[in-house]
Simulated scan of single mutants.
Amino acid sequence: MKKIFLLLGIFVCSSFTVTNVYKPFEVQVRIHANKIELKPSNGFNFSLMAFTKKSVFINESGMINEKLPEEIENSDFIFKIARKNNKILLEGIKNTKWKTLEIKNEAIINQNGMQ
């Protein structure tokens, strides 16, 4: 009888696996006039962003301070974007299915990767 309850308990616990929920987003990323430019079409609260900083952390609202725990916790997704020579390097931080992406000049990215 104990074995039946143990097996039933294992079965019930295994059916409650945690899966990541990826909020959909889509953004065009490009180098334009010596700046990195983000032009989202879905999932962001801004319509255009351009910056010259070496690297920034981006969530649905724009640039964030990655050192503030509440910024990380309250974000639907986060990625780091940096420029190295004529390439854009992206690092998925939170709720992206990709870890790193490299863009030559321009690309459209979403939670799944590059299109």
Results as ranks from 00 to 15, higher is better:
Lys84Met: 06
Asn85Pro: 02
Asn95Ser: 12
Glu91Ser: 14
Lys99Glu: 11
Asn74Trp: 13
Ile64Met: 11
Val12Lys: 11
Val12Tyr: 15
Glu102Asp: 10
Gln115Gly: 08
Asn112Glu: 14
Ile58Lys: 03
Trp98Leu: 01
Lys67Asn: 14
Val18Tyr: 14
Asp76Thr: 07
Ile103Ala: 09
Cys13Arg: 04
Ala33Met: 11
Lys97Arg: 14
Phe5Glu: 12
Lys23Asp: 10
His32Tyr: 07
Asn86Glu: 14
Ile72Phe: 14
Ser55Phe: 05
Asn34Val: 04
Phe11Lys: 03
Gly92Val: 00
Lys80Val: 02
Leu90Tyr: 00
Asn85Cys: 04
Ala82His: 03
Leu90Val: 02
Lys39Trp: 04
Lys2Gly: 01
Glu91Met: 07
Phe16Tyr: 06
Val56Glu: 13
Ile4Asn: 03
Asn110Met: 03
Ala82Glu: 12
Trp98Gly: 08
Val12Leu: 14
Thr96Leu: 04
Glu73Ser: 15
Arg83Phe: 00
Arg30Thr: 10
Lys53Leu: 11
Glu60Tyr: 00
Phe46Asp: 03
Thr52Gly: 10
Glu60Cys: 06
Ala50Trp: 01
Leu101Trp: 11
Gly9Ile: 12
Asn112Met: 11
Ile103Cys: 07
Asn59Leu: 08
Phe57Gln: 06
Glu102Cys: 02
Leu89His: 12
Ile109Ser: 05
Gly9Asp: 05
